[in-house]
Every structure is written in C-alpha cells, then in structure tokens.
C-alpha cells in the first residue's frame, strides 16, 4: 500500500512540477492522472500495484468534496442573488450536453459501423 501511495503522490508531484514549468493551464493532478495511465499501460506490475490503493481512495471520492462544499457558507449571499440564473444555466446546459454528447456517439457509431455488441 505504501508503494502504491508513493507512486500516486509522485505522479501528482511530477504533474504539478510540469504544469508550472511549462505554464500549462491544466491542474497538476490531471497531468498526474495522464502520467499514471501511461505507466499502467507500460507496465502490468505498476497496474497491479496501484489498483487496490487507488480503488480505496476512489470508493469514497464524494467525501473529499465535503470541505470545499462547506465553503458555500461564504457564498450564501451570491447564491441568493444569482440563484435563479445559476439554476437556469445548470439545467439548460446539462440537458444540452447530455443530448449532444449521446447524439454524437450514436451518429458516429452508425457512420463507422461500430455496433454495440450487447445489442445483438
């Protein structure tokens, strides 16, 4: 477990260092994710090593948003002022993104003859 945790933190650290070095707009951990993915593809041993620990962290992923979410106490006034606007933005944008994303998947799957195997 300690080896897996070390590897995950090392990927994050490398990601943080690289985004700052090259001035990339992406957060460091996102680059760390890409780095870990490449390492897992390259080595089956790495993949076997990080899976149990990584899955343990991901199992309680939603707990990790709680501290940031509690920060809403400092934004109650803003939420009150812009509440209706935010609600409109979130609902319309989420419905559009769902419809366009699923539509694009289905159309390209049909054009390229990429069938869903479970359909047959």
């Amino acid at each position: 477990m300690i080896h897996a945790l070390t590897l995950i933190l090392a990927c994050q650290l490398a990601g943080e260092a690289l985004t700052r070095l090259f001035g990339w707009p992406a957060p460091g951990p996102v680059l760390g994710m890409a780095l870990l993915f490449v390492l897992m593809l390259a080595s089956g041993r790495v993949a076997a090593l990080v899976q149990p620990t990584g899955e343990g962290i991901l199992r309680h992923l939603s707990l990790l948003f709680v501290p940031a979410g509690v920060g809403v106490v400092g934004h109650l006034q803003q939420l009150g002022t812009y509440g209706a606007g935010f609600a409109l933005v979130l609902i319309v944008s989420t419905v559009l993104a769902l419809a366009v994303g699923a539509g694009a998947f289905v159309i390209v799957a049909r054009l390229t003859g990429n069938r869903d195997k479970s359909d047959a």
């Binding site: 460091g28 951990p29 990584g54 991901l58 501290p67």
Partner: peptide, 26 residues
C-alpha cells in the same frame, strides 16, 4: 477554523484525481 481540520480530507482530492487513471486503464 473549520478548514484547518477539514484540509486533511481536502488534500486527498489531488491523489484521487491521479487515481482516476485506474478505471480508465481497466
């Protein structure tokens, strides 16, 4: 004051993001 305690949970967001590579690999 709250965040002084909660930061230990908050810190794990970074490693959790890195760990998202695991379902992608699977």
């Amino acid at each position: 004051t709250y965040f002084e305690g909660a930061q230990f949970v908050h810190f794990l967001l970074g490693p959790a993001t890195v760990a998202l590579a695991i379902p992608l690999w699977q």
